[in-house]
Amino acid sequence: MTQIRLRFYEELNDFITPALRKVEIVHVFFRKASIKDIIESFGVPHTEVELILVNGISVNFAYTVKDGDRISVYPKFESFDITPILRLRPKPLRLPKFVIDANLGRLTRYLRLLGFDCLYSNAYDDATVATISSEKNRIVLTRDRRLLQRKIITHGYFVREVTPKLQVKEVLKRFDLYRLITPFTRCMHCNGILENIEKQQIKEHLKPLTKMHYDNFLVCSGCKQIYWQGSHYKRAKQLIDEFMQISG
């Protein structure tokens, strides 16, 4: 029999039973287990964890838990750098790129509107999302904590909000993305890069009123969707302004 004392800090408590939140948990088990196994047995995805201290010493996910261990588990630190202690990730993702599960289509479109690289398909199953994340070094965004428990996923985030607009604000704040916003640079439909194109090259694809009133156009390098500053542009600009309002 092995007995340990364990405590989860800050937003990691979102994942565990209310009675166990923000208190020291006495946990007993009867088999050899890694610290990763113990943490995820409480429903906390390993991708949400940034620092683990065992008896005051930083360890990684491979650490084998021992009888009498006192364990503290912390989420991502926003306000100070803990690199001198230990980061569980091999290295941070400098330019955030996402793969988004099939239930977050509207969030995907909004993030693309803001210029972020988001792979998405409503045909992606969990295995596909996990493989893309691992092979292409992309952050998983999901509301499925079981997906984030897949071992090959090292960068992932469980989106707490349910409403798409609030999800966008949550992701922007969680990953500190405000300075990286580049609106109208990525196709909302396929994620391709938008490029300037001469009106003459596409005029046969334009409706008469569009051809008459607009001169500046963008085209998606992937699906060839054409964009211009019509009535939809004003609505999109209002959305962008709303998203860029940083809340406390």
Rank of each mutant, 00 (worst) to 15 (best):
A236M: 13
T185N: 02
I181T: 01
R143A: 07
I152Y: 08
L111M: 12
C223H: 02
Q201Y: 03
L239S: 15
F184M: 11
Y120C: 06
G222Y: 00
A130L: 09
I39L: 03
K169L: 08
T17K: 06
M188W: 11
I57Q: 04
F8H: 11
T131D: 01
L172E: 07
V129S: 01
T47N: 03
K76G: 01
I226C: 06
C223K: 04
L206D: 04
N55Y: 00
R179W: 13
G192H: 04
S133P: 09
G43N: 07
K203Y: 07
K165D: 15
I39R: 01
I35A: 05
G156E: 00
F184W: 12
R89N: 02
P84N: 04
T47I: 02
S41D: 14
H155Y: 08
A236Y: 12
E10Y: 06
D117P: 09
R145A: 03
D144K: 01
N55D: 07
I85S: 08
R112N: 07
A19E: 15
E10I: 10
F61A: 05
Y124T: 00
I139C: 13
Y214A: 13
R174M: 09
L194S: 14
T131W: 07
S41A: 12
S247M: 10
S231H: 10
R21G: 07
F80T: 02
P164V: 01
N122D: 12
A102G: 00
F30W: 10
K151E: 15
G56R: 04
V26K: 11
P183M: 14
K97I: 12
N196H: 13
Y63R: 00
A19D: 13
L53E: 12
R112M: 02
F80S: 04
K76E: 08
F61T: 00
K169A: 07
N60W: 02
C187W: 06
Q225R: 13
F30V: 15
H155C: 07
I39F: 05
Q225L: 12
V54G: 08
R160K: 10
H27S: 09
T128H: 00
D101G: 08
V28H: 10
K199N: 12
K151M: 13
G248W: 09
